[in-house]
């Protein structure tokens, strides 16, 4: 079907329980969602409704207790760790809610890390690409700073640049503008939307910022483990 080819990401009836025994919580209660290439999606909702949990599942970082996930047309739920790891490296760029950088490495090295693993580019090509990505998030001058020498907002922007490194077809970002001022929020958001349009990437972001949500192609409000 021509339609399904346009979907970079699909999930159907996802369930996820978290916690053990008495503390077991039904966090996701049958979530279905799909993301087309070239579109930017916003997932919004109150704190604790399960946005991050969903994003981890979509990013293949976690496994659902029920339901199905499809990445670029191939079913990913119930595949082995190796296949999911390969898909993460090739198709998915993930920005964590709590901007995770490898602090002993410079901004440049952080951005190059996924490229080195994928190994599609030569070293000078990787370096060039990392430099231009960092420049596009406004950090062209700080490429050789260690993670520890960057502010929270700067770290977050490096994490965004890193998520874009392998030109993934799907970008999942958990509050990518959470720590940023107005100017840098706009910078990061504009970069993500521009890439979505130019390269036909699907962008899914979680945000608490109504302004940003409004500027997305589609907004999916979530409450209590379900889209409403």
């Amino acid at each position: 079907m021509a339609d399904s080819a346009n979907f970079a990401l699909r999930c159907d009836n996802l369930h996820r329980y978290l916690g053990q025994d008495d503390a077991r919580v039904h966090v996701l209660k049958g979530v279905s969602f799909e993301a087309r290439r070239g579109q930017v999606y916003a997932i919004v909702g109150p704190s604790g409704c399960g946005k991050s949990t969903l994003l981890y599942l979509l990013g293949l970082l976690d496994q659902p207790d029920g339901g199905e996930i499809e990445i670029n047309g191939s079913k990913m739920s119930n595949t082995d760790d190796l296949a999911r790891t390969a898909a993460r490296g090739e198709h998915i760029g993930f920005v964590f809610q709590f901007h995770f950088l490898m602090l002993e490495f410079t901004a440049l090295e952080n951005v190059m890390m996924p490229m080195r693993k994928l190994g599609r580019l030569s070293l000078p090509e990787m370096t060039d690409r990392a430099h231009s990505l960092l420049a596009s998030v406004g950090l062209g001058e700080k490429t050789h700073r260690l993670g520890t020498q960057l502010s929270g907002g700067e770290q977050q922007r490096v994490a965004v640049a890193r998520a874009l490194a392998n030109q993934p077809s799907i970008i999942l970002a958990d509050e990518p503008t959470g720590n940023l001022d107005v100017k840098n929020s706009a910078l990061v958001f504009d970069l993500l939307t521009r890439l979505a349009k130019e390269n036909g990437q699907a962008v899914v972001l979680v945000t608490h910022n109504p302004e940003i949500a409004q500027r997305c192609d589609l907004t999916r409000p979530m409450r209590d483990g379900l889209f409403v």
């Binding site: 970082l61 190796l82 790891t85 998915i92």
Partner: peptide
């Protein structure tokens, strides 16, 4: 552990 999670999210395998 966080670095391990980051590496794994970027496509680094268990073997790596």
């Amino acid at each position: 552990t966080k670095d391990i999670a980051i590496l794994r999210s970027m496509g680094y395998e268990r073997r790596d």
